[in-house]
């Protein structure tokens, strides 16, 4: 008898999270269109396409669903007879799918927009940074959730502090091009060349450092959930 595979579980989690994400994408589109219309009347600076406009919000969105996902999927999947290991691996894979899907969808929307405006900026670097940033945020939300779920609220607060620390390291990795993580969307207004020029380190080195940080976070999540009791309620 074949056990339930990581890819199968990941697909189901991904589909579920994409259902949530359709709402988010819809709302982002509505806000963007609304602001664009307002922009013709009032003068304020706004990002010049949906891809750039959505970056900051996507990070917050991924952070929030990272928090929700930890509490939602693990008890559900354990109840279906899935092991913690499969659960955690599947959630990580699903989060990665989602982290690629969101910028991809916003890029396509920006492309459609470009058909009308004629303006389309796209670089592999900004796309990669978008993926990295929202994936990291998801993992941070997930770690905080584990802190509260596995331990008590006081230790949960320690986990928040830890998440802020990781967040700081992440900002440091990209510090040449960004001041703080929450200003990250500023980066997207720059082209790939300017990113490289202003970075203390090269894009490639920052990417490797980011992957390393992600690997550390995933190991922490796996270790914390390995023997985690699942609540019965």
């Amino acid at each position: 008898m074949k056990a339930n595979s990581v890819m199968k579980v990941a697909r189901d989690i991904y589909i579920e999270q994409m259902k949530w994400s359709l709402w988010f994408i819809g709302i982002m589109m509505a806000v963007y269109v609304g602001l664009s219309i307002a922009h013709s009347y009032i003068d304020f600076s706004s990002a010049n396409n949906l891809f750039l406009f959505s970056a900051g919000s996507s990070m917050i969105y991924m952070f929030v669903i990272g928090i929700i996902a930890g509490a939602t999927f693990l008890p559900q999947l354990i109840k279906l007879g899935i092991t913690r290991k499969t659960c955690v691996y599947s959630m990580a894979v699903a989060a990665l799918y989602l982290s690629v899907s969101l910028p991809l969808i916003f890029s396509l929307l920006a492309l459609i927009e470009a058909l009308f405006s004629g303006l389309f900026q796209f670089s592999i670097a900004s796309f990669a940074l978008y993926v990295f940033s929202i994936f990291v945020m998801y993992l941070l939300g997930w770690i905080i959730n584990i802190g509260f779920y596995k331990f008590n609220w006081m230790i949960g607060l320690v986990f928040i502090a830890f998440a802020i620390f990781i967040d700081y390291i992440y900002a440091l990795i990209w510090s040449g091009s960004i001041v703080a993580l929450y200003n990250l969307d500023m980066l997207f207004t720059e082209t790939f060349e300017t990113v490289v020029r202003y970075s203390n380190s090269s894009f490639l080195i920052s990417s490797v450092q980011t992957l390393l940080l992600i690997a550390i976070m995933l190991i922490i999540i796996r270790l914390l959930t390995k023997n985690m009791p699942v609540k019965i309620k």
Binding site: M1, K79, G81, I82, T83, T86
Partner: peptide, 12 residues
């Protein structure tokens, strides 16, 4: 514990 083969055959 954490045995995928066995866990899928236990319903709680």
């Amino acid at each position: 514990y954490e045995n995928a083969e066995i866990n899928q055959n236990i319903s709680f």
